[in-house]
Design a protein around this nucleic acid. Structure first.
Length: 153
RNA sequence: GCGGAUGGCUGGACGGCCGCGGGCCGCAAGGUUCGAGGAAAGUCCGGACUCCAUGAGAUGACGGUGCCGGGUAACGCCCGGCGGGGGUAACCCCAGGGAAAGCGCCACAGAGAAGAGACCGCCACCUGCCCGGAAACGGGCAGCGGCAAGGGUGAAACGGUGGGGUAAGAGCCCACCGCGGGCCGGGCAACCGGGCCGGCAAGGCAAGCCCCACCGGGAGCAAUGCCGAAUAGGGGCCCCGCGCGGGCCGGUCGCCGUUUCCUUCGGGAGUGCCCUUUGGGGCAAGGCGAUACCGCCGCAGGGAAAUCUCAGCCCGGGGGCCCGGGUUGGCAGCCAGACCCUGCCGGUAACGGCAGGGCCAGAUGAAUGGUCGUCGCGGCGGCGCUUUCGGGUGCUGCCGGACAGAAUCCGGCUUACAGGCCAUCCGCGCGU
């Protein structure tokens, strides 16, 4: 009986894994290796990302953090933040949805495994900025954040 | 046709690419179906539902409501009336109980603001002075007085208008209106109509306090209930202190069972040990599982003692029963309901009854979308055609498309809202 119980504690750590495992299989069908993108829902992860490096671009603010060794690192995680300064509830929702679509379009190809990204909405611009400009913003922000990492030995 | 009043509806459509959340089916891949609003908002009322408190309840405090009748689960909501006010009208507006229970206040202006008051003013008798006069007397001014009509102030001036009356005046008297009290008639009632009496006594503010009637226990879904890491850890009681307990390792037991090369995929050759009836079987190595039992022998050593140490390795005083707390988080509450649609019946209506049909979001760093295109709508402009000169119509360019995002759920209220549509009614104009 004791051996049966000892297998239990290991399970919570693996809850994030199954997605990663399936995603690792799926890209083979496409021929390219696209890591899975999952969503950050935990407050602690948001706070950690906010304390790590950041890059402001016209459309939004990007916060990014490379996860530590003991955390799962096979996927890309992304979160979204729109405070009350962005506008009323309708505007906040719309800003968040645009950021979500933006992450979907760009991050799977240009994000890095084992990193957390948080996209922070800005008043007026996040909702109004033209779509191609926003995509360009994210590409430049990612480049800058990754370069900063490599410059620091 | 123009202007207006009221009630209601709508809140762009279609498609391509890429996505999200829930349910159902499926081992899975995946499939299928559903997926924001009229206010989802403000959180202002009323409930459902939970937990807490409570002897039924009464009283007080506090809060709320306030014409009458009806509707409703309930309401401060809705409907129908009444009264007052506004509008030619349709219709709209009203915080609409009590001011002869009491307290308080009524700024400024004004003489005076509640049993008030005399600034200008009006006036007879009487007294004094002056003028005229022969005198009687007349006139003027002042005093002693009378009055409150007119002027003036004010949001409001101690009933209003008219007449009589008077020196001048005054509800002093009269008529009507207003006010108060009975009476009669109508209405469930608020109230309305009529008539009689009284005779001015009763200013306004209750959204200052207050009085009267009625209603209200408190907190809220972050309510509340359940599950819940681990050698973790809190409290109580009892027992033991035994080379004891827990984890890991090994032994042991059970099950499985082997390796290399070639290949035309049929097979062939080789093989750690033993047995063989040549079919194969057993043992060792290996894997998986179980773990009661065992951990070389010996049966100990240190310390005054409690007790500690050692012997596979590591950690620790141990065991039993009961109670309680609780982090990350998960589940329930949590979506079939005072529900929606249609029809019939009752009711002026709000609404109610019956029958049939329908299933319509359940997220939790929070889904219900992102992007591109076409069409449609509105505004401004250009060109063409047409015109009863108001406009209509075709093509085209630019711009715009509101207010706003479910979070336990219902009934209301309030506030926000680009543009568009419908119905009924009123006034004016024109035609018949």
């Amino acid at each position: 009986m004791g051996a049966g119980d000892t297998a239990q504690p290991a399970r919570p750590a693996e809850t994030a894994r199954p997605d990663a495992g399936q995603a690792a299989v799926r890209p083979v069908l496409h021929g390219a290796c696209r890591p899975a993108v999952s969503v950050i829902r935990n407050r602690a992860d948001f706070l950690k990302a906010a304390r790590a490096r950041r890059q402001a671009v016209p459309g939004f603010l990007l916060q990014a953090r490379r996860r530590r060794q003991e955390e799962p690192f096979s996927d890309i995680r992304v979160g979204f933040t729109c405070s009350r300064k962005v506008g009323n509830a309708v505007t906040r929702n719309r800003a968040k949805r645009r950021l979500r679509a933006l992450a979907h379009a760009v991050l799977a190809d240009e994000g890095r495994k084992g990193w957390d990204y948080v996209l922070v909405g800005r008043p007026q611009v996040t909702v109004a900025r033209a779509w191609p400009d926003l995509i360009g913003d994210l590409r430049r922000a990612l480049e800058s954040v990754h370069a900063e990492r490599e410059a620091r030995p």
